[in-house]
Design a protein around this nucleic acid. Structure first.
Lengths: 209, 209
DNA sequence: GTCTATAACGTGATAGAC
DNA sequence: GTCTATCACGTTATAGAC
């Protein structure tokens, strides 16, 4: 009775409708606060169909979560593994690309961070992010630059915390920053836009102090 | 029937027991995923007592949230408004104090950021953080330093995003950093401990580039 | 004030008609 | 495949005895 190998247009379309509705609702509310009824409504379908296609809320969530992670991290590694760019160019390109990505999907960082905490391990194994990072062209170039004395001998751990903190945290704490500085959405985005250029400059100054 | 002005030892003690149990559970799981049964069990009391003292899960949550915010932000402003320290000293002291605070209560940043998003406004008004920041001694010193040309003309918005991002983000993304770098809890804490000294140095180099 | 028992409700999931 | 109606269960909240 499960629609496993079906390929009629209508079938695929409905399944995708549910999945993309689930992305929206889960990203916004997290697993616990999201209701299957919200997802069904967002998708414009009946609640029963959700269970027909995905069997349970949890199974649907796991699919959404895994896809979100893969999307999010694959966009990182495409820049990190480009063999034709220097370390400095990678940093600039990454900052710019990543901020664009966060403009498009600003809820993802908080979603990822929350659900990692509730999952720990089970998920991490599936995407094996550790190896992807350490075998990347970026890390090789980073270590080479240190060996050649071109940048300060700062552990990659600190570098990553700095880079991600500077890029991602403003999105995570967006409502707080907006309130403190009295910014509209447009003004906030303008401040973030400036950071595309600023963050690489700041990182460079940190690395060469 | 409500225990409004009661002051017998036993009464206060039970109310406090529930509230501090609620802090623990809410901080860990957020509002939606926390169950009143968890809180009652954590407090070592009967579930009915929770409703007797606080009327509802939501009312209890609002109290916990407000107190958490006040604790968290008041610890900021005590450093920011010390008139006897320089800008540089405030940055050093704040970094050190704040990291110690986060060691003690590492779930708070994620809790705050999540619940601000689900609340927006209603909560912000109550603590009026905007005025507290802009009237602080810290901001005055920051602007004075710019006017005197001692530091770069970088808007306070960016400075705050940088400072908070460098300090707080590692705690928010702790499981991710631990996994990527293959760190134990002890090793992770050691890395963070190093940042107490490093972050002020980095900020200074950013501000004088 | 504190407990047990239970009501009232919301939510995930399924049966069965079409 | 899609819908309506309903079940089954977990959770919040309350009534009432002590």
């Amino acid at each position: 009775m499960k629609p496993e190998k079906e390929s009629s247009e209508k079938n695929i379309s409905t399944e995708e409708k549910i999945k993309s509705a689930a992305r929206i609702v889960f990203h916004q509310k997290g697993f616990a606060a999201a209701r299957t009824r919200d997802i069904a409504e967002e998708a414009g379908i009946n609640l029963a169909l959700l269970n027909y296609y995905f069997r349970s809320k949890e199974k649907l969530f796991n699919i959404v979560m895994l896809e979100t992670f893969q999307d999010f991290f694959s966009s990182i590694f495409s820049v990190f593994n480009d063999v034709d760019t220097s370390l400095e160019e990678k940093i600039e390109k990454f900052a710019s690309n990543y901020i664009d990505l966060l403009f498009r999907e600003p809820e993802i960082p908080l979603f990822i961070v929350n659900e990692i905490r509730n999952n720990v391990g089970e998920l991490m194994d599936k995407i094996n992010i550790r190896n992807s990072v350490f075998n990347s062209e970026f890390v090789k170039q980073y270590n080479k630059a240190i060996k050649e004395g071109r940048i300060r001998n700062l552990s990659f751990q600190h570098f990553m915390m700095n880079f991600m903190g500077l890029l991602i945290f403003p999105f995570i704490a967006k409502p707080l920053f907006k309130e403190i500085n009295g910014l509209s959405d447009v003004q906030f985005n303008k401040v973030i836009e400036e950071r595309k250029q600023l963050i690489p400059v700041w990182l460079k100054s940190i690395m060469t102090v």
